[in-house]
Design a protein around this nucleic acid. Structure first.
Lengths: 288, 288
DNA sequence: TCGTTTGGTTTCGCACTGCGGAATTAAATT
DNA sequence: AATTTAATTCCGCAGTGCGAAACCAAACGA
């Protein structure tokens, strides 16, 4: 009864202006520092006057700083504060730290937790020893879903509907490059089914090898995923399979236990709530 | 010509819906993890249906995650991504790192950079050696403006108008506690005038002593500030004055030089632009 | 010097969004 | 069963937010 229209159309509860404003903020990628109204308009595909109003509003609220020298904008401290609040509220991050540390010491690989944002996994926290990888990844770093151990573990931890939805998104996102990626994902699906962890050896960066394990919580919060990686010469595929992988699985199980049990897998619970109408129903409908 | 109304009233360029949506996100403080619509409504003073719509929108966009178990929401990875992008785009943070490291090693104190968000200073980055302070401050941490060396340095680096505005805000924010704070600020103003750095010894936390120095850039980006702090017994007031302070000032001057010169202080330039109407005029008007 | 290009802002009338009071439902509590 | 608490849905209307088009200013270039 609220479903008919073809496009986004009439979703009376969706606040377009807010969505657009956030799109403007998101237009600022981690590199490109300064952006003018023009560039923002190009990226967001919104008409110029709209952008003007939005940047004006965001500036007034302190999320953007004008840089008069270049007549452009920059993300401001307030934007940062949001991110930090998000981070601080992420229980997994804190709780998993000692576990990560331990596995890092035991294996010599860097251990990280992350979750998904759009088409990427994004790091919530990591433990690395001095050596480790050539690639330096910080909190907030993004890594692809399709080619990384963390991403694959995450993907295969999703319910089949969500997974299908995500795969569709990725396909669209990657265009012609998709088939190759999809193959890798499918292979990793078998690995996950058999061993409980995903592997990526040289598929993301030539010289990086890692395993990934997903964590499900019973609070309904989307799955998270851990990885443990090192330079390829240090983690041979053999070692990944027989040593690192199982170790990471054990770690995650421990964390799940500490956090109050893994997610119940049965759809029943959810459906009960879903069937009864109410908020959750709309939520689920809205989300995917 | 756009000024008359008493309240926010008619600012045709200000997008209210966006502002409110961001208020909802901001309602999530770094601690209180989960928030229900109710609590959000209370904090933001917005009517419930409005909150419903906004949380619905934010959820759909991936900035909030519903936690069905508690019928509440949590900040989601997308929110974090924003913050990270902000951080990554902050030139000062990266460029200042080696300088901070050096001063840290030379003095034994922790050295940090930060900027302002609302009523606080917020850390962009810091260098600490193993020991240092009892208080552990991370990127994203907030410290007060009035009682800290960093905050005071920042405050006295503002133009007199902005400073006045900020002081007004703080006064309102702190209510009856204000007079005492104001005294501290004023004393620190003299210190800044005389030595070029601000001091806070035991005024924020009993056992912490620090100096602060502001950094002005010529790109029009609001000032930033550095501090160098340690347990009080390690940084005596004498040492702050004669050693740590001057050293931090020197550091900041070096950074300014590396970044292409300190901000020109004359109001002329700005006024020229201002006079000519156009974007900047509206910006400035809007900001403060 | 005068077009031209580029990037941004203002205007303005209208459509439809977003609003919020009030009614409604769900679940938890008594 | 009655009450409380917390959310959602309804729905008509005010006025927000929209965006095409016009306008402006500065930078370029010839």
């Amino acid at each position: 009864m609220k479903r008919p229209a073809k496009k986004v159309a009439t979703d009376r509860s969706f606040v377009v202006a807010l969505s657009r404003g956030l799109d403007v903020l998101r237009a600022f990628q981690p590199n490109d520092g300064l952006l003018g109204n023009q560039e923002i308009a190009a990226r967001t595909k919104l008409p110029k006057p709209t952008i003007s109003r939005l940047t004006y509003t965001l500036t007034k609220l302190g999320y953007l700083t004008p840089v008069p020298r270049f007549e452009k904008y920059q993300l401001a401290p307030s934007a940062m504060a949001l991110g930090y609040a998000a981070l601080a509220n992420l229980g997994v991050r804190h709780l998993s730290e000692p576990y990560r540390e331990e596995v890092m010491r035991a294996t010599g690989g860097a251990v990280a937790v992350g979750g998904r944002d759009r088409h990427s996994m994004i790091y919530f926290g990591q433990s690395r020893n001095g050596l480790t990888l050539g690639v330096q990844l910080d909190v907030g770093s993004r890594i692809p879903i399709a080619t990384t151990a963390m991403g694959r573990a995450y993907l295969w931890a999703l319910g089949s509907d969500e997974r299908a939805a995500l795969l569709r998104e990725l396909r669209e996102h990657y265009g012609s490059r998709w088939p190759k990626l999809r193959d890798g994902i499918e292979r990793s699906g078998e690995t996950v089914a058999r061993h409980g962890f995903a592997i990526s050896a040289g598929e993301w960066h030539d010289d990086v090898a890692a395993v990934g394990v997903a964590l499900k919580l019973n609070d309904g919060t989307g799955p998270y995923a851990f990885n443990c990686g090192a330079p390829a010469f240090r983690f041979t595929e053999d070692r990944l399979l027989s040593d690192i992988g199982p170790r990471l699985v054990a770690m995650v199980r421990n964390i799940e236990a500490a956090l109050g049990g893994a997610a119940p897998q049965s759809k029943k619970q959810e459906n009960k709530k879903l069937g009864s109408g109410g908020k959750v129903a709309r939520m689920v409908e809205g989300i995917r």
